[in-house]
Design a protein around this nucleic acid. Structure first.
Ligand SMILES: NC(=O)c1ccc[n+]([C@@H]2O[C@H](COP(=O)([O-])OP(=O)(O)OC[C@H]3O[C@@H](n4cnc5c(N)ncnc54)[C@H](O)[C@@H]3O)[C@@H](O)[C@H]2O)c1
Ligand SMILES: NC(=O)c1ccc[n+]([C@@H]2O[C@H](COP(=O)([O-])OP(=O)(O)OC[C@H]3O[C@@H](n4cnc5c(N)ncnc54)[C@H](O)[C@@H]3O)[C@@H](O)[C@H]2O)c1
Lengths: 214, 214
DNA sequence: GAACGCTAGTGCGCAAGTTCACAAGCGCAC
DNA sequence: GTGCGCTTGTGAACTTGCGCACTAGCGTTC
């Protein structure tokens, strides 16, 4: 791996968090080193893929031995930007937005919910899990002030694009969209989606075809 | 497209539900035909990809005109197996499991929650959104009786593999896993995951590197 | 009925991702 | 210090996916 030629493939980036979780388990179990084969088993992938993926981070393994678990965990955390917190703003303080704010798993993993936003004046001023609900008009100033880099959209589908636009205007560089609709963001802004209905429909396809063809 | 050579690529299958949603919008707006270009714009993809994807379903377009919205919607629904309901079983009746059971969006899209399962005897017998909570020991007989084809795992990570095993033993062919852990299923069983922490970590990576490199 | 405009369907080259297989190299045993 | 077993790192073949650019063909106009 040459010095600054560190363009990590998207597919690899998507797997790093899986390895990270496996490494965290190994640390808990006080296991000092791990082979690519063992890590592959834990992450549910091919061992060659693990080695190639890890090689993008640098040459952190030792031939004949494996990878030092703590060292690799640290390097990977650094690469993923997990050595510091990422305050998150949630737009849409309904069922889902509230559930996410209440879910401790986020803060625990370094993604504290810094603010909730809603367009419903009746919700503004309420507090959910210690986080105040603000009006969507205040996204830009507040998000900037709180250092929010990641926005979560939990509004109805019809309001999702508007929410995205407001987040982008506030300087948010990454968006996680839960609304079941396609939204567009300017180049340079990362966008990922979580779409349950879509996942179920994909499963439905394979289920249907297994039943019919298999 | 030859007669029975209908192996639809995975990447295409994953996009079909997106097209489906766009088509549903068009039907609502009473728009009778749509071009691949318009559909591409709605689905946020390239027009050539739309045409290639749709060609796997059959030759349903008309050159010079476009696709008949209702006809394409029907054919796609049929292909995805959405012409009938898919009863779903949820394992883990905690915060997430309850939220999913309460969320109307599932039933509405043809995935009624047929049963909830939990290992906690205190929860067994309760009713959530009209669905009774059963003990995990009863997954096999009940899932079979209710015709459950799709299982949803909403247990803590430590119990996820056990839940998956029980679902597979009950004849469930597709699993959607919300627990933040890798689980394995026998070949022939479809597995998809929804993992919020993982999504946030991926966003964190790009956010970190934009800030540092850009 | 001929010509034209428009859009589906697709062949093909390119890019990304995956996997195999092997050489490089570390550490331990003796 | 030499040799051996083990595991990494990676070149290269292969697979999958993408998108351009072209052809086929429908419908409409004159
Ligand atoms: N609840 C679930 O389990 C679940 C599951 C999957 C997907 N979803 C999706 O998540 C989204 C939210 O679901 P929900 O159940 O929380 O809905 P909800 O109706 O409970 O909440 C939506 C919230 O968004 C607010 N809102 C509306 N327009 C807004 C705007 N322009 N700007 C800011 N806020 C606005 C509303 O005031 C409301 O508080 C929906 O798109 C839904 O399809 C929800
Ligand atoms: N709540 C959220 O917003 C959220 C968000 C992302 C991910 N998750 C994940 O979803 C899962 C569930 O989260 P939650 O908040 O509902 O947790 P929870 O503790 O509220 O619920 C878990 C439920 O699973 C049951 N359970 C435990 N072991 C079981 C077993 N062996 N078989 C069947 N049931 C068993 C428990 O009795 C409990 O009812 C967790 O893995 C969590 O990480 C939750």
């Amino acid at each position: 791996m040459s010095d600054r030629a560190r363009h990590i493939p998207e597919a690899t980036v998507a797997r790093l968090p899986v390895y990270l979780r496996s490494l965290a388990e190994l640390v808990d179990d006080k296991i000092p080193t791990v082979s690519s084969e063992r890590l592959a088993e834990m992450a549910g992938v091919n061992a060659a893929k693990v080695r190639k993926d890890l090689s993008y981070l640098g040459s952190y393994g030792t031939r004949g031995v494996g990878y030092d678990v703590e060292y690799l965990l640290f390097q990977m955390s650094r690469e993923l930007g997990l050595t510091h917190d990422w305050p998150v703003a949630i737009v849409g303080a309904g069922n889902l937005g509230s559930a996410l704010a209440n879910y401790g798993g986020f803060t625990q993993r370094g993604f504290p919910v810094a603010a909730l936003f809603d367009s419903d004046r009746a919700k503004v001023g309420q507090e959910i899990h210690g986080v105040e609900v603000h009006h969507t008009d205040d996204i830009a100033p507040l998000a900037k002030k709180l250092g929010v880099g990641i926005g979560v959209i939990a509004t109805p589908a019809s309001a999702a694009q508007d929410a995205a636009d407001k987040l982008v205007a506030a300087g948010v560089g990454s968006i996680l969209n839960f609304a079941p609709t396609v939204i567009s963001v300017p180049e340079g802004v990362s966008l990922r989606k979580v779409d349950l209905a879509l996942e179920l429909q994909i499963l439905s396809f394979y289920q249907e075809h297994r039943d019919a063809d298999g």
